[in-house]
Simulated assay, not measured.
Amino acid sequence: MVESEIADRIAARRAELDELEVQLVRQLDQVRAERDELAVAERVWKRMAEQLVAEQNAASPAAVQVVGRAVLLVPHRTARRRRGRAAAGLPADPGDRAGRRRTGGGQAGRQAAGDRQNLHGPSHQ
């Protein structure tokens, strides 16, 4: 009788441990999933922080020392900015008067625009 009682206790404890093992495996899976989510969130946060720093650096002019005085550097025009001017119908070089004539700017362009809008104000030539 003592042996069967000990065997029953061992079997009961083994069943409790098996149930606990299932619960711990479930918890471990949840912890691993949350860690993966945190790793993704951390990568996104770092990428956004890097972009923000890059944008702030691009937006703020750089100051340098010239002959002992602090001066701000003027950024060079980039190809993207020039394309933006061309897309807006503006010449790449603001001094390009022939480009303005080609795009309809100047007095003739203003007169034509006024004619299209039925505005017949004084014409300055």
Rank of each mutant, 00 (worst) to 15 (best):
M1A: 12
M1V: 10
V2P: 07
V2E: 06
V2D: 03
E3C: 09
I6W: 07
I6T: 07
R9V: 08
I10R: 15
I10T: 14
I10P: 01
I10A: 13
A11M: 11
R13T: 07
R13G: 02
R14A: 15
R14M: 12
R14E: 15
A15Y: 09
E16A: 05
E16D: 13
L17I: 09
D18I: 14
L20P: 01
L20S: 10
V22G: 07
V25A: 15
V25R: 14
R26H: 13
Q27T: 10
V31E: 13
R32Y: 07
A33W: 05
A33G: 04
E34W: 02
E34K: 06
R35Y: 03
R35G: 01
A41N: 05
E42L: 02
E42P: 02
V44N: 09
W45N: 14
K46A: 15
R47N: 15
A49M: 10
A49V: 04
Q51N: 10
Q51H: 07
L52A: 13
V53E: 08
V53S: 06
E55N: 08
A59Y: 00
S60P: 00
P61Q: 00
P61D: 00
A62Y: 03
A63I: 15
V64E: 05
V64Y: 03
Q65N: 11
V66K: 04
V67I: 06
G68I: 04
G68K: 00
R69L: 08
R69I: 01
A70L: 14
A70R: 13
V71Y: 02
L72P: 01
L72S: 11
L73I: 07
L73C: 08
L73V: 12
V74Q: 11
V74P: 01
P75W: 04
R77F: 09
R77K: 08
T78I: 06
A79F: 09
A79S: 10
A79T: 12
A79C: 06
R80M: 07
R81V: 15
R82E: 04
R82V: 15
R83N: 11
G84D: 05
R85L: 13
A87V: 05
A88F: 00
A88E: 02
A88L: 07
L90K: 05
A92R: 13
D93S: 09
G95E: 11
D96F: 10
D96A: 05
R97S: 12
A98V: 15
A98P: 00
A98C: 05
R100S: 02
R100G: 03
R101K: 06
R102N: 04
G106M: 00
Q107E: 12
Q107R: 14
A108M: 05
G109C: 00
G109A: 00
G109E: 01
R110V: 14
Q111T: 09
Q111K: 12
Q111H: 09
G114Y: 04
D115P: 00
D115L: 10
R116M: 02
R116I: 03
Q117V: 06
Q117E: 10
Q117P: 00
N118Y: 11
N118L: 12
L119Q: 10
L119M: 08
H120N: 10
G121S: 13
P122L: 14
P122C: 10
H124S: 15
Q125S: 14
